[in-house]
Design a protein around this nucleic acid. Structure first.
Lengths: 243, 243
DNA sequence: TTTTAATAGTGACCTTATGTCACTAATATG
DNA sequence: CATATTAGTGACATAAGGTCACTATTAAAA
C-alpha cells in the first residue's frame, strides 16, 4: 500500500495541487464546412496574436475552466466569440497532442467538425483579424497555423464517409434544396461524379426527404425543391444488418 | 492591433507562462478488448490510489510532458507501465472533458481502443493493485472509476461497426483461427446471430484470409485454420463506391 | 411561333451482394 | 458401424446498385 492510500479521499483532494506538475495546454478547434456559391467552404480566422500571428487557422482556443463546464460549451463558446457563428451540431473529430504542434509547449487540441447551412461570419474579438468562409480549393496554396491543415483534412475525410453512406451533407444546404444540388455537394465531398439514377434511388428509398411542392427554376427543366424530414441524420446508405 | 502583436514572437514565447491560467488536467485511457475463453474481455486495473481508490477502471493516467513527446507515446507507456501489456495498434476513440468527471477538477481524457490477441497482464506499479482481463458480461454489475464505463461502451460501439463492416475483429484472435471462431466473435460484438453462409461468403470474397492447410479438431468435423493476409485491416464490407 | 439547348427526372435491364435453408462432409463416441 | 456434432457448400430468392437511353419541362434563340 502506498502512503497515499492511507489518507482518506477528502484529505487527498484538499491537498491536491493541479499545478504540481506540468500539464499540456488544452485547446478546442473546429473545422466547420458549408456549401455556398456552388463550392465547399471551410470557416477560417486570421490570427491577430502570437503565435502564428498573421496566419489563417481554424476558430478555436484555450479552454477557460472557470467559464465553461465541458468541451461542448468550450468549442461552441470559442466559435461564437471568434466568428459570430452559432454551430447547430458539432461532431467530435479527433484529438491531436504532442510537444511540437504549438511553440508554447506540449499541447492537446480536441477538434470538432460540422456541416452547416451558410451564415455570415465576422471577426468579433481583438485576437482575430478577420473571419471568412474559404473555398477548400484554395487551401493548397495556404499555410495554415499549427496543424490545422491536418484537422481540415480529417474533417473532409469524415465528410466523405458521410457523403458515401448518408444524407448528412444535406445539412450544409439551405432548408429547401434540389436533388441536383445535393448530388453536386456529394460529388464535391467524394471527389468524383455519381450516377444520378443511383443517387436518387437510394435517397428516395430512405424516405427522408419531403417534397415542398415548389420548384427551383434556372436553365432547363425546373428542379423539385425538397426539405429534410425528421430523423435524416441517422440514416446510413448501407444495408441494415441489424434488423 | 493588440499590444501583444507589437512584440515579436520570440519575446512573446520567452514571456509566455503556461501556468498563467488554470488548464484542465489531461489524461489518456485505453479500452483494450480481446477474445479469450470464448468471451469478449476488456482490460481493467484496480486502483490503489485516490481518487476512486479501490474501484476498477481503464488503464490510463496523466500525460508526463517531460517523458513523452505525443499522445501515442503517452497511452502506450501508461498501458505498459500499469498492466505489462504491449498494445499492437491503438485507435483513438474520443475525448471526454468536463468539470465533473474527476474530483480533482476540470479534466480531459483522450481515449483509445484496440482489439488484440490475448496476452497475460500483471499489475506493475504501486498505484495499481491488480490488472485483469474482465468478461464484458460482468460489467453491468461493476461500478467503474470516473466515466470509464462510458468509454468502454463507446469502444464496444466502435467494435460493433468493425464487426459489421470489416474483419478487424480477427485481430482479437490467435494468429491461426477458424471461421466458426471468427463468426462467434462477430456475433458477440454485434449482439445477434449471423448467417454462416453470408458471413463466409463476404470474407472469402475479400480474399483476406490465407488457408494454413491445418485444422482445428474438436467435436464434429474439423475446421480449417486460417490466418490474416496483409492489408486485412482496411477491408470494409460495403460496396466500394469509390472505384 | 417554332426550334434548340439545357437541365431534371424516369424506365428498364443488368450485375452484384446478401438472405435462406437444405444438403453434404468429416470427425469423435459408443 | 450407427449416431451425434460441428464444418462447409449448393442453389435459388430477394434486394441494392450500375448503366444508359429515354422522356419532361423550361428559357432562350432563331
Amino acid at each position: 500500500m502506498s502512503e497515499q492510500s492511507a489518507m482518506d479521499e477528502a484529505t487527498y483532494l484538499q491537498q491536491y495541487d493541479p499545478k504540481q506538475f506540468d500539464s499540456p495546454l488544452v485547446t478546442v478547434d473546429a473545422a466547420l464546412f458549408t456549401y455556398h456559391d456552388g463550392v465547399l467552404k471551410v470557416l477560417l480566422v486570421e490570427r491577430a496574436s502570437h503565435p502564428e500571428l498573421g496566419k489563417w487557422g481554424l476558430p478555436g482556443g484555450f479552454i477557460d475552466v472557470h467559464r465553461v463546464a465541458d468541451l461542448t460549451q468550450a468549442i461552441n463558446g470559442v466559435i461564437e466569440d471568434k466568428t459570430g457563428i452559432t454551430a447547430p451540431y458539432l461532431e467530435q473529430l479527433a484529438s491531436y497532442g504532442n510537444n511540437r504542434r504549438d511553440k508554447r509547449g506540449w499541447s492537446v487540441t480536441v477538434s470538432y467538425t460540422a456541416l452547416m447551412a451558410y451564415q455570415a461570419c465576422e471577426a468579433r474579438i481583438a485576437t482575430v483579424a478577420d473571419a471568412q468562409w474559404v473555398d477548400v480549393a484554395q487551401l493548397p496554396e495556404m499555410t495554415l497555423a499549427f496543424d490545422h491543415m491536418t484537422i481540415i483534412e480529417a474533417g473532409r475525410e469524415r465528410l466523405k464517409q458521410k457523403a458515401l453512406y448518408s444524407i448528412v451533407p444535406a445539412y450544409a444546404l439551405a432548408e429547401e434544396f434540389t436533388f441536383p444540388e445535393l448530388q453536386h455537394l456529394h460529388e464535391l465531398l467524394i471527389g468524383k461524379p455519381l450516377q444520378k439514377r443511383s443517387f436518387r434511388r437510394r435517397i428516395e428509398q430512405a424516405n427522408l426527404l419531403e417534397d415542398t411542392g415548389k420548384f427551383r427554376k434556372d436553365a432547363g427543366r425546373p428542379a423539385i425543391l425538397y426539405r429534410l424530414a425528421a430523423g435524416a441524420e441517422q440514416y446510413r446508405f448501407v444495408r441494415n444488418l441489424e434488423d
